[in-house]
Design a protein around this nucleic acid. Sequence first.
RNA 1: GCAGAUGUGGCGGAAUUGGCAUACGCGCAUGAUUCAGGUUCAUGUCCAUAUUACUUGGGUGCGGGUUCAAGUCCCGCCAUCUGCACCA
Length: 803
Amino acid sequence: MSEKYNPQAIEKKWQKVWDDEKAFHAENDYTKPKMYNLVEFPYPSGQGLHVGHPRPYTAMDIVSRKRRMQGYNVLFPMGWDAFGLPTENYAIKNHIHPKIVTHNNVRHFKQQLKSIGYSFDWDREINTSDPEYYHWTQWIFLKLFKAGLAYKTEMPINWCTGCKVGLANEEVVGGKCERCGSPVIRKMQSQWMLKITAYADKLIDGLDDVDYIERVKTQQKNWIGRSHGAEVDFQIKDHDERLTVYTTRPDTLFGVTYMVLSPEHPYIEQFKDEIKNYDEIAAYREEAAHKSDFERTELAKEKTGVCIDGLTAIDPVNGAEIPIWVSDYVLMSYGTGAIMAVPAHDERDWEFAKKFGLPIIEVIKGGNVQEAAFTDVATGTLVNSGFLTGKSVEEAKKEIIHYLEEKHLGRPKTNYKLRDWVFSRQRYWGEPIPIVKCPKCGYVPVPEDQLPLELPEVESYMPTDTGESPLAAMTDWVNTTCPCCGGPAKRETDTMPQWAGSSWYYIRYTDPHYDKGIASPEAMKYWLPVDWYNGGMEHTTLHLLYSRFWHRFLYDQGYVPCPEPYQKRTSHGMILGANGEKMSKSRGNVVNPDDIVREYGADTLRTYEMFIGAFDMAAPWKEEGVKGCRRFLDRVWKLQDIVVPGDSYSPALETQIHQTIRKVSNDYENMKYNTAIAALMSLQNEFTKAGKITRADYRVFLILLNPVAPHITEELWSIMNYGGRLYQTTWPEYDEEKTKEKEVEIAVQVNGKVRGKITVPADISKDDAIAAAKEAVSSRLTGTIVKEIYVPGRLVNIVQKNG
RNA sequence: GCAGAUGUGGCGGAAUUGGCAUACGCGCAUGAUUCAGGUUCAUGUCCAUAUUACUUGGGUGCGGGUUCAAGUCCCGCCAUCUGCACCA
């Protein structure tokens, strides 16, 4: 009789063996077939790992372990996205240097990850807050700057009127500061920006050449939001100036009944003296400044606005005089900050027109525009539209743009919803932006041989009263000389956002200690692109897009060998709390993986995380389910007591074993871990029921289970004396012929309802199958048979008509 | 509001992409083992209905439709979840 399964002892033992043997070291042997598997590196927060982290990590660990056994040189690295706001806030509160906080958190995370037995190559560990790492983050920024893709502009930020600091959106709760409760307003601040919009087309088109799950592609495309439309110029009455708007529907130009300016539109100041109700408009603008873009568009149901008294626009096609309004549903950040409103054919315009009693003119036939906006582009025909009347929407678009171009009243224009990337943070715990501000030379890059520009030690991590970074108080550090003219100058005190370090980390893993560049050309040529990158859906539009942007830029500059960083992208679902809600400290439903490892073992944790449900869907954590997985592993452990000699599979189970090898091999690659485990459970049930298992059966079973539960299988491998290490074994093959059943049970339906079942040879002919089926349900065949359907291996359906 | 997804037993979820709905696991019930509890093992478990039978009917969020056949395809609703650019 075997000893009791004791995961705590077994797991520690094998983790040490793997470490000592450098079992999962990615070799720099560039002649082998490679596979680069990547998971999103964690932000080492003070809370430690929660059970959401192991889901993607275990999934990719399974693929990595399997591929190693199939002969691949696998790179499966791990590191730390270590700069960030919560660490800084913790440091401010507790007066501890963020470096120390980060160090402690990383130590804790690493110990947790090690206890789960991941096959990471720890020799390639990186940390974005390490100067040796951010040296190259800063270097990339300088390249962007020199290419004209980094620039400074005035941007509104969230400003806490109490703390007098800039706040992250997340720190603003209901328009108030999360910490002190004071109102938050939008304040203009000079910010570094990266011109990601210059790469909008490349980022869309690049998606054609990569293997991303469809919803990631769709979401990125929608986020970039490319639309083809036109800019139209409206003359302002009695002035030389024209008001330019962007529209995707120039065909509806005859239906314009008013214009709307964003409250921040420069014309409001420019025409201040002409506007009779300027005070009212200024008050409205003040009010809008308290709302975020999100709130402004969300409050769509209660539209607000003020009509400008004193300015009128002229319709370029029919000369009609059109009133100009100001409303916050128009955003300065999209298009030109002004729109032409066509209430008959746009929902937001329609609601606004209804509320303020503005006219609604139908220009496309098909709906009842007094009841609702008619927005169907496909079927509509133009009416009330002068020379466009009678044309389809498509034709009218072309014609009107042609007309506007000819008269110099407009032009075709492609627009993007994507906005440039705000790259400045007025914070301490981030990469210093390596720029010097010289009164003579302007913004001057720090020479590359002076990188890394290290973060100086400061006394307080609190931003200054003026909203500048804490670095601004470090006069020794701030005051410097201009690298260009040698005169006195000041350093930039803003730091980079956390996204910076994570935008290129996958490059650094290929050669983490290289000191002449981001990584050696040989390492990049061999390892890049990442073959498979798995991460959360929540990173689709920000991190994933930002890193694709940086990579594409580096490619255009000749620094990386391929245009796209990630060949394949998949996404995991969230692990929710037992109550079906997102896990969070405030909801009190967080589960710590340490507790699961301690009570049930890492292999049970891994198995449950994979068995919990479809990998790409959210699933609630249930401790009862964990127990079921532990029971499964207990049964696997006990199989050792019923092993019988035998170099081949049990004849009775041979078909099922070959089927299981096929299913598990395919399911691991297709991220269907739950059904792979279900198939292994079924096989284990068969072994237990049979009361015996041959050495060959057990051997292949252990290999198949190994990627999911590496410790217990390695231990059993050793107990069974199969020789060597399981992790060094070759992945099993299956024989397609041997997966085929000799006999199959098929359903017999009469008029689509199952009325019986028959067992027939798998290769039975259609006629024989139908004949056998008819016999099985003969008592029910009372009418005239009108149709007979045979689906091989599935069913026979006999359709009859009575009477 | 915009964008992306999801909805199947008491619960987590399967279903080869139009072919026997509910695999696998949990829970529960009954029995065995045990002084007992736990563990372990065996059997059963979609709902209703009938039965000393292998009965009959219903059933994949709701309402329609296509088809010999629909969880799967089409049209229209409803509900829930995720993201929205300074959390990462």
